[in-house]
């Protein structure tokens, strides 16, 4: 109980810290929504076709979650590591799990909130359609899909200083977004790119959420690949976290 209560407290104050710099939150909320307005809505072929439009909205929602997870964890942790506030927090009577959950709660909430304008704009300006139940199933899939991105963020945060982390996060974010078919649908990909794309967590996330919202087949590579990314990045994150503890205080 205490663990969860303190996780909520840490999450609350992390959110408070973030919202005190409103531009950071606004950009997290506005970026995916604007991307939808600029890149999806004007393309009549996509915007007027319910199937494609829904997939495009899902892609942008995932982009929102991915960008938020990578930035919050990658940059957030890299920055926190450079501040002496972090070792102070570790002297308080609070379990490490509570602190990590605090990060997940705060980041997760902003990520989910960033999805809402995408869904609303998608519903108003495109032919995208989904039942309330499908949307809820989709949100659940989005939460699962966010895991590898959060863990990749953790790895970046613990292995790089903040300035390097910004650059790497941006490259990873746009690379993953493009390779995963979040900007251009994979059906426009050349066959070799389409094959390569299936190895990216962003592509796997896209397929998982589309399956949750629209139904259809779920290829084994989707959940196998996602499982592999989650396990792989979790092990790496743990290793980097431990290594960091020894190195930080030299």
């Amino acid at each position: 109980m205490t663990t969860l209560r303190l996780a909520a407290v840490h999450g609350k104050y992390l959110l408070l810290e973030t919202t005190r710099v409103p531009i950071a939150v606004i950009s997290a909320l506005a970026f995916p929504a604007l991307s939808l307005l600029f890149f999806v809505v004007p393309q009549q072929v996509v915007a007027t076709n319910p199937l494609y439009a829904t997939q495009a909205v899902i892609s942008m929602a995932l982009f929102a979650v991915m960008a938020n997870a990578l930035f919050s964890f990658g940059l957030g942790i890299a920055e926190d590591r450079e501040k002496p506030w972090d070792p102070y927090l570790r002297t308080l009577p609070v379990a490490g799990v509570s602190r990590v959950l605090g990060y997940v709660f705060s980041t997760g909430l902003i990520g989910l909130v960033a999805v809402l304008p995408v869904i609303v704009l998608g519903a108003i300006f495109t032919a995208a359609e989904a039942s309330v139940l499908s949307i809820l199933a989709g949100l659940l899939a989005v939460i699962v899909s966010a895991l590898p991105f959060m863990l990749i963020g953790v790895c970046i945060g613990y292995s790089l200083p903040a300035k390097a982390a910004i650059a790497v996060v941006q490259i990873v974010m746009f690379g993953f977004a493009f390779a995963g078919g979040l900007f251009l649908p994979p059906m426009l990909f050349a066959p070799w790119l389409d094959t390569l794309s299936t190895f990216f967590p962003s592509r796997q996330a896209r397929e998982l959420v589309i399956w949750a919202v629209q139904g259809g087949d779920l290829h084994p590579w989707v959940w196998l690949g996602m499982g592999a990314w989650i396990v792989g990045t979790a092990v790496l994150a743990l290793f980097l976290y431990r290594r960091d503890e020894g190195r930080r205080y030299r």
Binding site: Y13, L16, E17, R20, V21, K83, P84, W85, P87, Y88, T91, L92, P93, V94, A95, G96
Partner: peptide
């Protein structure tokens, strides 16, 4: 053990407070 630290008070070495709070 974090439960042990309930009786402990610490202070950061540098002025480390989160600036926006």
């Amino acid at each position: 053990d974090h439960r042990t630290r309930v009786g402990l008070g610490s202070t950061p070495q540098e002025t480390a407070l989160p600036p926006t709070l």
